[in-house]
Design a protein around this nucleic acid. Sequence first.
DNA 1: GCACAGCGATACCGCACGGGTATCAGCCGT
DNA 2: ACGGCTGATACCCGTGCGGTATCGCTGTGC
Lengths: 288, 288
Amino acid sequence: MVNARYDHAVETRELRYFVAVAEELHFGRAAQRLTMAQPPLSRAIQRLERRLGVVLLHRNARGVALTEAGSVLLREARTALDAVEAAERRTRRAATETPGLVLATKAGASRELLSKLLDGYAAEPGAVAVEVVLCGPGEQERLLRDGRADVALLQRPFDTTAGFDTEDLHTEQQVVVLPAGHPLADRTHMSMAEVTTLTDLPLPRWPRRDGSHPGGPGPQVRDHTQLFQLIALGRACAIVPESLRATLRDEHATVPVPDAPAVTTVIAWPPHSRSTAVADLVRTATRL
Amino acid sequence: MVNARYDHAVETRELRYFVAVAEELHFGRAAQRLTMAQPPLSRAIQRLERRLGVVLLHRNARGVALTEAGSVLLREARTALDAVEAAERRTRRAATETPGLVLATKAGASRELLSKLLDGYAAEPGAVAVEVVLCGPGEQERLLRDGRADVALLQRPFDTTAGFDTEDLHTEQQVVVLPAGHPLADRTHMSMAEVTTLTDLPLPRWPRRDGSHPGGPGPQVRDHTQLFQLIALGRACAIVPESLRATLRDEHATVPVPDAPAVTTVIAWPPHSRSTAVADLVRTATRL
DNA sequence: GCACAGCGATACCGCACGGGTATCAGCCGT
DNA sequence: ACGGCTGATACCCGTGCGGTATCGCTGTGC
């Protein structure tokens, strides 16, 4: 360290600190989350702001608000931290002798596609063990980005495939799931407009990525089991890909919704992946 | 810092150190490049290895070699460091009041497309200033990845578009450029095989990303000016997209090479880009 | 209207860690 | 066998980071 010029580059620790503060919007709670005291955290953020020459937070006497630049940094810092974590994890995994693949997929979705894929790949010469990680909605992208998974099954337009390489596997229409015996249950088809105006069966509210639920009339649901139970009880309806019909019992009825957006299941993997196992798995998948 | 457990996460400084060593394959030179002494660098790498629980380098008494895990980390660390740099740069730019776009493109390539794009976008309502950065082959991806550019024109299959969102703009065939008056100059077409066996006119050798040149018979070239001069002198030939014919004078002749891979010019931008300016520019581009 | 609660900023201190110099230890080529 | 490379080790020093104590501010409740 020759002198006190601000030529230091940003460290991941500072990014972690900033993300904590930006998420909590409260220095004290953020410090607690980081298991440190509040003053050094305040100073670290000040240092970061000075170094970037940018005001990241507006300090109102009662808490904190993100500036425009701050919300840019929040988004960018998250992906940068994911990239660092991914570097760490992939390096560790590269050093273990059992390579293996980790495949992330949504619980309950694309069951048939998944088993065909796993069987097909296992029959390939040179196939390695595949560990399947079932995760909540929107979680797969995170796993793929931070190196916990090597490959994932995603569904457009629900999941965002930005930043990954993908191959389309399967496209399907959506259906509305109703309680069996509902007056509309034997319709040949319904429109989105009709479904959203079913006031007796509101659409459920899924949690956002941060765990909070959007406001609205429908019940809050966390997974498909809850969802289908609520539908069977006549408290909700839902628009889902038609392949989910395979998991339904006779307490549910389905009606096609032709104008709902088609759902495309894609296989996704991080770019620059040099793994032949990933390439083999993708090749198997596209042949199905 | 409660105790001496190895629960610290990887810092960007350590990644920078490792990349320097992995690129130089020599602690002394790497330390010089980092403007620091060699011993602390050695220790930092040891710490990193201990923390990851992985051997990254084989220390032969005469220099250093990357392990399997080491080369994984080299690749991953580069993208992670680019992501951190991008976070820094984009945050700084978000704080400046003049938004502006930076567009990276290869020098000399797609001149006509570029001017149509710039004119078309400038006519859009809400258009912001566009700064054009001309850069060497393969450099655009770097600029896009580390936040120095917001959008780039790339050419498949020369450039890799992995990790970016892209839209195809234009596909063209390739032609071979010969000195005017060459015996083959008035052929209606040639095959790749014919071109590569022209021993009197070897294909030139472009520098790799690290600046080194591959071995071979042809002359080394750094840019298109050098290339076309060498061709005019009867020392080389080259296969280039046909749009480059517009920049040629009468000292060159071109012959189509139908079996050369078609070149697709795409517009690329980093995923998660929330900038409306980028979206507008892309929309303009796809309408051309 | 004033005291208090809650927030982030500041002051000050101690230590651990990052960096420097000097030196050691192996391995090659001559 | 011995210099001349390499990277590793020993030891020291300065500073930068984190800790505690406290301040300054502001909105709030009685």
